[in-house]
Every structure is written in structure tokens, then in C-alpha cells.
Amino acid sequence: MTKLTRRDALKFTGGGILAAGVIGMPHIARAAYPDRPVNIVVPFATGGYNDRLSRAFAPHLEKALGQPLVIANKPGAGAQLGHTYALQQPNDGYTILCTSASPYIPLSILLQGAPYKNEDFHMINLPSRDYTLAATSSGSSLKDFKEVIDKLKADPGSLSIGVQPASADYANLILSMQAAGIDPTKLRIVTYDGGGPNRNAAAGGQVDVGFVGGEGFLPIKEKIKPLAMFAAEKVDWFPDAPLIGDSGLKTDFVEGSQRGWAVSTALMKEQPDIYKVIEEAVSKASQDPAAVEALKKQQLSTTWYGPEASNKAFKENAEKMAKYIDLLK
């Protein structure tokens, strides 16, 4: 992909014939940030979690920033295209990312050779955390995760398992199988290319057990039986799901998704004043009672963790993924 932006192209084509174009570039002398609409880049198609989050949060962030927001969806290649696009934009604070930082940033680097590094992104706040949930259909005879392990120990092909390849869920599946001493290559794994189809397959009994992000299960809670949530503590949005630790299995795991707001690290370092304005606006909007209420209704998160905690969580999870990357290949 060419790194030429339109602005660069204009520079190359030179002033002569395009002199009139100068009128089109009024932002050379900068007034106080922000003095024009700010772009929110969502590296996913319309309708997904990040798209919904950005659209629901936008009115509140607009109020805090004092400028309208333009939501730009840049989907494709496991969010790689949108992330690349966001980093290519001018370093002026008019581009904010609303993305599933984890697992998409580390995975696109580790598996697809994306042209950026984890360190290129600076997290402002990652309110939404999702965890892998092993679940079965509500009509299934499986009682708990221990029974799954026992059955697979006896015959690794006895249960079919639905999972997305190259995902945090897949890593958790393999880690737990290894911890239980089951050969993962002998499992009957059915691959899905999205969380939705995988959940439907688990709820409908197409596969015996599905390993997939738990939050998406909420609307069809009645159709599934949660077996094990791959989280360290009880998850507030699904309190009745047993934790993986409860099954008696000692296994490491990675967090499913960390979604929220980010900018380029370059902005944070080179334009600290502008960055401060954005951080304060996100912080203010996240804690605005109106925003909290509006987003809660749509089952979207606003919890304010702040940049320090968010970056720490992102970094730790990314490192864990790098450690277990061989499992995903």
C-alpha cells in the first residue's frame, strides 16, 4: 500500500497549476485545538461493537471536546487496514481510534505482519473487557467444564469444539487442553470466522462446546449453559458463569478483548498539549452520568480506567499473546 497521502501528492505536483488549491488548505496556521470536526476511526464495519460504542459515545464526547465528531469506518484485514490508516493521518489530534486494541493490534502484528508495533498506539481508556467463555447448548448433557475435560481425556475426538482460529479464544482452548494433558492436535475442532456464527453453533448444539467471547452470549443467555469463563475474577455482566479456576484446572489464559479509545503514541509524545485535551475530554465524557446511563442501556461500557491502567493492561495482554503465539500458528 502506498504511503503517499493526498497532501504529499499535492506537494509533489507542485504549486503552479494547482495554485488554486491553496484555498483548500487553510489549516497551516493552527488555532486552538480543536477548531474543526474530529475524525473517529473505527477499523470495523458498521454494526459491530466498536461501531456501536463510537456512535453511542459520540454525542457525549462531542460535548466534552466542543467540536462535532465524524465517525469513519475503515474495516478490513482484521482491523489492520484501519489501524494503518489511523497511524498514517497527520499528527494533529484530529484522528482518534475506537478499536478492539486487544487482540487485534498484537494479532495483526504477530500473524499478518502488520506494518506497525504495539508501542505505536497509546491507549486513553479501554472500558470494555471481554473474556473467553466455554459454553454448551442449554439442552446439552454436559454438566460442567470438568466433565468436558474428563471426556476429552478419555477420547480427544469425543466432543466437537467450535472456535475462531488465530484468536484469544483459540489460545485459551489450547492452553487449557495442554494443562489437562490432552493432545490438542487430536481434538475435533470446527473453525468459525466470527464470534456470531460460533455462538449460534454452540447455542444450537451444532458443536458440543464453543470457546468464544462471552459478552455476545448475553442476548441468548437462555439458550446456553456456561461452562467456564477464562477470567481471574467474577465478571460483573455474567456473574453466574463459573470461572475456569473453579473447574480445578490450573491454566494460564489471555484476556479476550480490550476495547476502547486510543491515539498514536507519536501524538502523545510530540503534541502533549493536544493529547491532554483529548484525554481530558474522554475522561470527562466517560464519567458523565448521562453518558454512563445511555451506554449502559445499550450494553456498552464506559468505565474510566485511565491511560495508565489501560496501557498496562494492553501491554501485559499483548506480551502474553506474543508468548503463546506459537499455539495460534
Binding site: 454494526g47 453511542a56 456470531g196 455462538r199 449460534n200 442476548p219 439458550k223 442501556k297
Partner: peptide, 17 residues
């Protein structure tokens, strides 16, 4: 089911919520 069949029904779902 509360399952969006495609992007359009996902938006409808969001509106419901």
C-alpha cells in the same frame, strides 16, 4: 434470538437496546 443476521439487523438491535 437477539442475533443479528447481518449488519442492518445489528443496528436495529442497537436501537432496541
Amino acid at each position: 434470538l437477539g442475533i443479528p443476521g447481518g449488519g442492518a439487523t445489528a443496528i436495529l438491535l442497537a436501537a432496541f437496546m
